[in-house]
Nucleic acid binder design. Structure first.
Lengths: 144, 144
DNA sequence: GCTCCAATTGATACTCTGTCTCATGTGATC
DNA sequence: GATCACATGAGACAGAGTATCAATTGGAGC
């Protein structure tokens, strides 16, 4: 999800109503360029004195997730979080220093998994790959 | 985790006390050969009329996870679950038909991820890969 | 076998996340 | 502008997981 406008357009095209709360949530999401939890968005909304119900934020996130505007990811500590992203299949590399997430496209994973499936005799229908590490921007700051 | 005895031995070697509740939880885990949620274990314990507190089961699972006897996985629906496994780094292929999970060893993933990291300039420190699909045993039953 | 102490337990209260309900509000269509 | 179904906000609710604390118990040392 690049900007709130793009999200609003996607909502419209999918036949969803363009309500003020949905626009507001889209902006909150766009304002965060890393991953975020539902609770953080609720806090954001409160901080900006937007009177959006908690349930509405959850519903909006569900809707956005259904449209592929955000994606649910699971952080290493088990927390559920969301990341704004483009609506194509891809994976996330999440920086543990700044929290930003990079979308990474296939890079040969599909082929790799196909091979794994063949070797196991396992018909893979879906998968989840999340990478955690240090992004290029944070790398000098956190050499290890 | 192959059997409860093995788990008990691991606990012992790690300096944990071998208490009745821990043995019981180890047996409950060993009795399940697929993935399971904490809630399911609690229900199992109740079904067997074991008087083990809910908190104790959570604590035992935490301990087992710390020892690598079980691992937390996130199901496609976002639920947290555990799978019994061997204490080495590996990944899980979870059958969506029977619920069983296969441990899969590296199969070249480390190399693949190293390559991805280099291309992104991202220093990958940890990752999570979970595969969902249909295992060989269920495959004829669920052709698609 | 007995004692002792720290680790562990069970019960319970609590927090937090996410869902559900329902009366009220509002966007889109005409 | 009127209409109506979709969306909202408030609040109740359910479930997962954690924190607290007094009571219990495993196991080391004797």
């Amino acid at each position: 999800m690049i900007g709130a406008a793009r999200a609003v357009e996607t909502l419209d095209r999918a036949g969803y109503r363009l309500t003020a709360p949905r626009r507001a949530v889209a902006e909150l999401v766009a304002a965060r360029n890393g991953h975020f939890t539902a609770a953080e968005l609720v806090a954001d909304a409160r901080a900006r004195r937007l009177s959006i119900g908690r349930a509405t934020i959850f519903r909006a996130l569900d809707t956005f997730a259904a449209l592929g505007l955000v994606e649910r990811v699971d952080l290493p500590d088990g927390d559920h979080a969301y990341v704004a992203c483009d609506p194509v299949h891809h994976h996330h590399a999440i920086c543990t220093v700044c929290g930003r997430s990079l979308d990474i496209e296939d890079m040969g994973l599909a082929e790799f998994l196909g091979d794994v499936g063949r070797r196991l005799g396992f018909r893979i229908t879906s998968h989840r790959l999340e990478l955690f590490g240090v992004c290029p921007a944070c790398s000098p700051a956190a050499p290890r």
